[in-house]
């Protein structure tokens, strides 16, 4: 009972943080609030027994994302969102409310939160829980699935991260080298 109470409170905090992120215009404050948002979601994952997800979210979501966003506003030197003139708020609001209502209607027949009889708990999950220790020797089932049963998926994930890294280097790193090379050529021409 107490964990449901904690989840309810933390989820309410999460919703309030999200609303204040939308309403703020100072980008620095928005990024700090986003860090708080990520840590709150990590806390909620701990309460919902997803400890591996929680520490990944705390390290990667709250840590690296926040640093990347701070680096971006440092590079763009743009710390305030300008009030937009051409956008009308009512059209996006209507789209969002209609979509949200359709999704809430969809939740009415899905299994209740924490239901041990839900279809999601009946299929392959018991297999992994029963077999992971005899087959892989790893007591943490999440690690066993991630690194052993679904090792190829993790390899695919590494490829995605590698591709993103190369793309970031091409977008930011390569151009700087080119401008340096150009200035070097200029110096050589002067000589």
């Amino acid at each position: 009972m107490i964990d449901i109470f904690i989840t309810v409170i933390l989820l309410a905090f999460l919703a309030i943080t999200a609303v204040s992120i939308v309403r703020m215009t100072n980008l620095f404050a928005i990024i700090m609030l986003f860090g708080i948002f990520s840590f709150l979601s990590a806390a909620i994952f701990v309460v919902m027994d997803a400890v591996d997800v929680a520490f990944t979210e705390a390290a990667v979501g709250a840590g690296i994302s926040t640093v990347l966003m701070l680096a971006t506003i440092a590079l763009t030197r743009d710390h305030h969102e300008k009030a937009s003139t051409s956008h009308r708020p009512w059209l996006p609001l209507a789209v969002v409310i209609v979509t949200g209502a359709a999704l809430v209607y969809g939740t009415l027949d899905i299994p209740w939160f924490g239901d041990p009889e839900a279809p999601a708990q009946m299929h392959v999950a018991p297999y992994y829980i029963e077999r992971s220790v005899p087959e892989t020797g790893v007591p943490n089932v999440v690690t066993a699935v991630l690194a052993s049963y679904r090792g190829f998926d993790t390899l695919g994930e590494v490829i995605v991260v590698f591709t993103a890294g190369i793309a970031v280097m091409l977008l930011i790193g390569g151009r700087r080298r080119k401008s340096n090379a150009r200035s070097n050529e200029g110096e050589e021409d002067d000589k």
Binding site: G61, Y128, V141, A164
Partner: peptide, 28 residues
């Protein structure tokens, strides 16, 4: 608890940060 969604979301968090980094590089 069911470990399978945890595995999927671990992958999604890491891929999400990679796409965020790419988006922010485009912004710069």
């Amino acid at each position: 608890s069911n470990p399978l969604p945890h595995v999927l979301i671990l992958t999604a968090i890491v891929v999400g940060v990679a796409t965020t980094a790419l988006g922010l590089a485009l912004v710069v």
